[in-house]
Every structure is written in structure tokens, then in C-alpha cells.
Computed example of a mutant assay.
Amino acid sequence: MVDKSKIKKSYQALPVGQLHVDPNLDAQRIFMATWANKLARIWDPEVLLVATVSKREDGKYYLIDGQHSTAVAVEKEGPEFLRDCMVYENLDAEMEAKLFLSANRDRKPVKPYDNFRVAITASDPLATRVQDEVKSCGLEVAAGTSPNRVGAVQALMAIGAKREGLVPKVLQTAEQAWGRDATSWDNIMLRALGVVIHQNWDRIDYGRLVKTLMKAPVGIWKSKALHALPSGGGSSSRSTPLAGHIVTAYNGRLGPDKMLTTGMAS
């Protein structure tokens, strides 16, 4: 056990090229490319938070928290880019592990709507556009769902990211099919409609699509499309078979030139 009285802490601005990850540490340090790619897409060096670093006896700096964002910083800004760090000295492996767990365990998950509100305050372009497009339909983004409020925030953001104008198309289609009702703004259904409309933007007959959807309430559509799926998975993965089910129903008795495509990427 390390003598805690010998532990030193200081803030330093360090070149990201000098921040290392110990390859001998366990699975909690596995690099997740998908998370790094997400950080790269929203990269903004002005809001990069402080990394937590251990300066070891060999004089090298090892990351305790901030591995993925540091990798993105190296890629985007170069190895000489200075990152603010909280540097610990004289830690042993146990204390490094405790700091890692604290950094990741003690963060309270941010609810999607709270995240959305913060994005609006920060003038995030996507969130601002999605909010405007929802309002154009006489609705509002909210923490919970009601006839006039859409609580499927993650679905709205995912749909909005596909293309401008898709959010109102999806909401208007859902309303025309099932009315202005809380069940119309189902997260999985909105995602599925987003996939169908996005993939068939220039060829879809909205009148036919609405009539197709009106044949059953949202719950029945979801039940028929998802009953064969194994349990688990998020809304995004579960929306894909639902989108395929909608396309199959829409295409009934249509010629090949009028059919919607089924090669969908959620």
C-alpha cells in the first residue's frame, strides 16, 4: 500500500503525445474505436476536459482517465497539442485502479433530455435544428411523452442527423397515421420511420405509407416485427426489423419500379 502522504497532485499542460496507456493493465483500459470515432465527429478542443494522469517512477505519464479523447487529440491536433491534466505522483497500481474506478463509476448518467437542453444552451447546430423542426409540427421536445410533447429525444437526434427536414416528415407521417397521441411518438417507431423515409426520400408515396401504417396501432406493428428477435439490444437495433416490416407491407402488389428499398442502415 502506497504511503498516501507521499502522493503529490498538480495541474499541468502536457503534450498529448507524451500521455501513455499501459498495455499491461486489464480490460478496463481496452480501446473502444467506436467511442473514439464518436468523439472525433464532435471534436472541439475548446471544451476538452482535464485528463487524469499518473507520473510514474520512470518519468512517463500514464493516463488514468481520458484515453479516448487523448487519442482523438493526437489525431486531430497532433502530438504537441497541450492538454490540461491533473497529475498524480507516487501512486501504486491499487491507487491508480481506484482513481480509474472513481472517474468512471461516480459520474451520474445524464438523461437524454437534460443532455438535449444543454446542447440547446450551447447552440449545438443539430440540437437547435431538431428543436426548430419539432416546433414546426406544433410539438415540443420534452422529458416525457404526451400528445403534444415528444420524449423520444435520442430518436429525434438520430433522425435529425440523417438529413435536414427528415424530423418533420417522420412526425407528420406518424400523426397522420395514428393521430396526435402519446403512442404515436414511440422511440422505436420514430426511428423505423426515419430509416424508411430517409432511404426512400425521392420515391416514397406518403399517402400510401400513411394508409399502410393505419392498418394497425403502433404496438401491433412493433409486436409483429420484433417478436422473433432475441431479448436485449437498443432502440436503434430494434428499429431496423420494424423498418423492414413497414417496407414489406408498403410494397404489397407494387411493381418493382415503385417498391421501397429494404437495404436499410439504422
Score class of each variant (00 low, 15 high):
residue 111 K to Q: 06
residue 226 L to N: 10
residue 158 A to H: 03
residue 196 V to L: 01
residue 25 L to W: 05
residue 61 Y to P: 03
residue 105 R to S: 11
residue 83 R to C: 01
residue 2 V to I: 09
residue 223 S to R: 09
residue 23 P to Q: 09
residue 173 T to A: 14
residue 198 H to D: 14
residue 79 P to F: 00
residue 220 I to F: 13
residue 154 Q to I: 01
residue 217 P to T: 00
residue 109 P to C: 12
residue 220 I to V: 14
residue 130 V to T: 08
residue 118 V to M: 14
residue 146 S to G: 04
residue 209 L to W: 04
residue 251 N to P: 04
residue 204 I to A: 13
residue 55 K to Y: 05
residue 194 G to T: 08
residue 36 A to C: 05
residue 180 R to D: 02
residue 9 K to R: 10
residue 102 S to K: 08
residue 253 R to G: 00
residue 5 S to E: 14
residue 178 W to M: 12
residue 183 T to C: 05
residue 20 H to Y: 08
residue 233 G to W: 06
residue 90 N to I: 03
residue 129 R to C: 11
residue 202 D to H: 02
residue 15 P to T: 07
residue 154 Q to T: 08
residue 72 V to R: 01
residue 94 E to G: 07
residue 181 D to A: 12
residue 36 A to R: 05
residue 106 D to Q: 13
residue 117 R to E: 13
residue 162 K to I: 11
residue 129 R to E: 15
residue 146 S to F: 03
residue 247 V to Y: 07
residue 76 K to S: 12
residue 120 I to P: 07
residue 95 M to Q: 11
residue 10 S to L: 07
residue 253 R to D: 02
residue 215 K to G: 13
residue 133 E to R: 00
residue 163 R to V: 07
residue 36 A to V: 06
residue 186 D to S: 14
residue 120 I to N: 10
residue 111 K to W: 03
residue 149 R to G: 04
residue 22 D to Y: 02
residue 36 A to T: 06
residue 40 A to F: 07
residue 122 A to T: 00
residue 170 V to R: 11
residue 221 W to C: 08
residue 154 Q to K: 07
residue 136 S to G: 04
residue 266 S to V: 09
residue 134 V to Y: 00
residue 91 L to Q: 09
residue 25 L to N: 14
residue 89 E to D: 05
residue 183 T to I: 05
residue 255 G to W: 01
residue 66 G to C: 05
residue 235 S to I: 02
residue 34 T to K: 11
residue 252 G to N: 06
residue 241 P to G: 04
residue 123 S to D: 15
residue 84 D to K: 08
residue 118 V to P: 07
residue 259 M to S: 04
residue 44 D to F: 04
residue 77 E to K: 11
residue 167 V to R: 12
residue 55 K to E: 15
residue 34 T to I: 01
residue 224 K to P: 00
residue 16 V to F: 01
residue 214 M to A: 11
residue 153 V to W: 11
residue 205 D to G: 00
residue 216 A to P: 02
residue 18 Q to K: 05
residue 131 Q to E: 15
residue 128 T to V: 07
residue 254 L to D: 10
residue 265 A to N: 12
residue 131 Q to N: 15
residue 176 Q to E: 15
residue 181 D to S: 13
residue 130 V to C: 07
residue 260 L to W: 04
residue 4 K to M: 10
residue 4 K to G: 09
residue 56 R to G: 03
residue 38 K to R: 14
residue 248 T to L: 06
residue 219 G to C: 10
residue 77 E to T: 09
residue 134 V to A: 01
residue 243 A to T: 09
residue 235 S to W: 00
residue 195 V to Q: 07
residue 127 A to S: 15
residue 237 S to I: 03
residue 55 K to D: 08
residue 112 P to Q: 07
residue 65 D to S: 13
residue 33 A to Q: 14
residue 25 L to E: 14
residue 243 A to N: 03
residue 176 Q to F: 05
residue 192 A to D: 11
residue 156 L to R: 11
residue 51 A to L: 14
residue 142 A to L: 10
residue 187 N to G: 01
residue 117 R to L: 10
residue 120 I to E: 15
residue 34 T to P: 09
residue 115 N to S: 15
residue 74 V to Y: 03
residue 254 L to W: 00
residue 175 E to C: 09
residue 110 V to C: 09
residue 182 A to F: 06
residue 154 Q to R: 06
residue 172 Q to N: 11
residue 168 P to H: 00
residue 139 L to A: 03
residue 160 G to T: 06
residue 214 M to D: 08
residue 207 G to F: 02
residue 39 L to W: 10
residue 126 L to P: 07
residue 231 S to M: 01
residue 50 V to L: 08
residue 69 S to F: 04
residue 243 A to E: 10
residue 103 A to E: 14
residue 234 G to T: 12
